[in-house]
């Protein structure tokens, strides 16, 4: 038992994650071909615009379900929102935000871009602290819009009237999941602008712009898109329910900042917060790179059901820095 824990703690999380992500990526993108269907309300970008994905993205359904007249909230259709959230949670609790760090294909893609950049020896760019704080809010705005716009389709807004159905699934229209992932099916059809209506044109145009930004951004900035991702915002609401946890023993922390450096999301608190035990912030994707980068014995830990499965150790730190 001891040997196993030691082996795990000394392990390189980078390598483990790299392979895990590849497997997850294939399951999500091509899972359907092998009759894999993990679930319908996955807390990750298993985009139904794909040919045969191994599951379905929760956000798509959410947007559909909120296209709901107010009077039908207390009805079978209203209930569907709750059940879908429950299904979402059923998947979510196991991995918590690690869905982002380990499974999400959009996240994985961004990590691959980073790998390519590193290989080319090109430096990364970073946001300043002020900008970072501002940008962080965008995902909540997107999350709000993604619920409000569908409501606006089903209900009349004073002065505007009902929105046309062209406004449906508004987030999907700008989501890189729709435009980028199908490329892996050899399908480039989403990378076009739809001129059938003004709204569609604007949306598809925006989608293209986002895609362009996604490629360029993810190349220079680690996990560029994740800062804006409404999925991450939605997950964060439920982080307390997660069985997988990232915890910190602040008394052991020297504030050396090694974890902060390692963090692709640039989460400052991981180093500077020595008060809170639960250290998962809204941007965190639970990749656990920080745990691997921390040199203080047992300072950062990964717990599953309150049992430590991976933790920072001095020895592991040396093994990994060699």
């Amino acid at each position: 038992m001891n040997k196993i824990t030691k082996f795990v703690n000394n392990a390189s999380i980078k390598r483990f994650r790299f392979w895990f992500q590849i497997v997850a990526f294939f399951i999500i993108i091509y899972g359907g071909y092998a009759a894999i269907e993990i679930g319908e309300n996955l807390p990750t970008f298993a985009c139904p615009y794909l040919d045969k994905p191994g599951g379905t993205c929760f956000l798509m359904g959410l947007q559909h379900r909120f296209t709901l007249p107010f009077d039908q909230f207390i009805s079978f259709r209203g209930l569907a929102i709750i059940t879908s959230i429950l299904f979402f949670l059923a998947g979510f609790v196991f991995l918590n935000k690690a869905w982002c760090g380990y499974v999400c294909p959009i996240g994985t893609l961004q990590d691959w871009f980073t790998k390519i950049r590193q290989k080319l020896g090109i430096r990364y760019s970073n946001y300043s602290e002020k900008k970072f704080k501002k940008l962080k809010k965008i995902k909540y705005i997107l999350l709000a819009l993604l619920i409000l716009i569908p409501l606006g389709i089903a209900n009349s807004i004073p002065g505007v009237g009902k929105l046309s159905h062209d406004w449906g699934v508004p987030f999907c229209m700008v989501c890189p999941g729709r435009t980028v992932l199908p490329i892996f099916n050899g399908d480039f059809s989403q990378l076009t602008i739809d001129f059938s209506s003004k709204t569609k044109m604007v949306f598809t145009f925006l989608g293209m712009a986002v895609t362009g930004m996604f490629f360029a951004g993810a190349f220079y900035k680690k996990r560029f898109f994740c800062f804006f991702c409404p999925m991450s915002a939605f997950q964060f609401i439920f982080k307390k329910l997660g069985l997988l946890r990232l915890v910190k023993d602040g008394s052991k922390c020297t504030k050396c900042g090694d974890c902060y450096r390692a963090c692709d999301m640039g989460i400052r608190e991981i180093a500077d917060d020595v008060e809170n035990k639960d250290i998962v912030k809204d941007d965190c994707m639970m990749c656990f790179k920080c745990v691997a980068a921390c040199p203080e014995e047992g300072c950062l830990k990964v717990n599953f059901l309150s049992k430590t499965i991976y933790k920072a150790t001095e020895e592991g730190f040396y093994k990994r820095t060699k």
């Binding site: 590193q118 020896g121 430096r123 050396c256 090694d258 902060y260 450096r261 390692a262 730190f317 820095t321």
Partner: peptide, 21 residues
């Protein structure tokens, strides 16, 4: 006592890593 660690092997990350530490 304090130990630096860098994420990417390139001067652009290693030197700031040292500085931070």
């Amino acid at each position: 006592y304090d130990m630096p660690s860098y994420d990417e092997q390139g001067l652009y990350d290693m030197i700031p890593a040292i500085a931070d530490c």
